[in-house]
Design a protein around this nucleic acid. Sequence first.
DNA 1: ATGGTAGGTTGCCTA
Length: 260
Amino acid sequence: MSITVATWNVNSIKARLAPLLEWLRAARPDIVLLQELKCTTEAFPRAQVEDLGYHALVCGQKGWNGVAILSRFAIDPIVDRLPGDEQDAQARYVEGFTGGLRVAALYAPNGNPVGSDKFAYKLRWLERLRRHAAELLEGDDAVVLGGDYNVIPEPIDCYDPEAWRDDALFHPESRRAFRALVYLGLYDAFRALHPDEPKAYTFWDYQGRAFQLDHGIRIDHLLLSPQALDRLERVAIDRAPRARAHASDHTPLVAAFTEG
DNA sequence: ATGGTAGGTTGCCTA
């Protein structure tokens, strides 16, 4: 038996409840890291996911952002905010221990346009994540940091690097901040098992028939501690939910781990 | 050619 961990930016839990429940029934992931709930913690559809056998650890806010961990196993809450800035009230990080894994659901800032306050916030946020991840790596847990990093790590992760050259998701500073996480000793689960696979996208814009044309980018990632990497069996992008009507612009990324 | 789409704190902001 193995444990599957998925990450999925649903772009509004309210708008995506039916597709989410349908996917949970079909794919039966053990642990799901959700982003962009766009609802308060209180408004999260807890009963509906519990009916499918999931515990839920939710960190929401009104209107924007919002992250959650769903798990077939009980979840021990650890933190519901990214350390390093007490003034930051944006619901972008939740971490817990479940199924023998320390998991976090994270939603990094988009950061557009480059040079704005939002871009500076993105870089500060990723640096806070780096500092927190460094602390996590001092422990012995198998750690899975999953979510929408809003970073295209390499040209191979983008259908047209030239078209994204001036975007905050592909800016050299954003890519550098992502590499700084890897240099700590975290492993990009997808690239660990599929180092040269092109067109491994997790996001396609709603505009311009991007999905039909496969104009995608890979910005949703599962970063693993060495202890988690040792247990990684397989990882895949499930394009099926993106192909459905009324889809999120992101699709799930799913990894399987041996039981610890 | 600064468009196009989708969702929300909706007639504008975020992505």
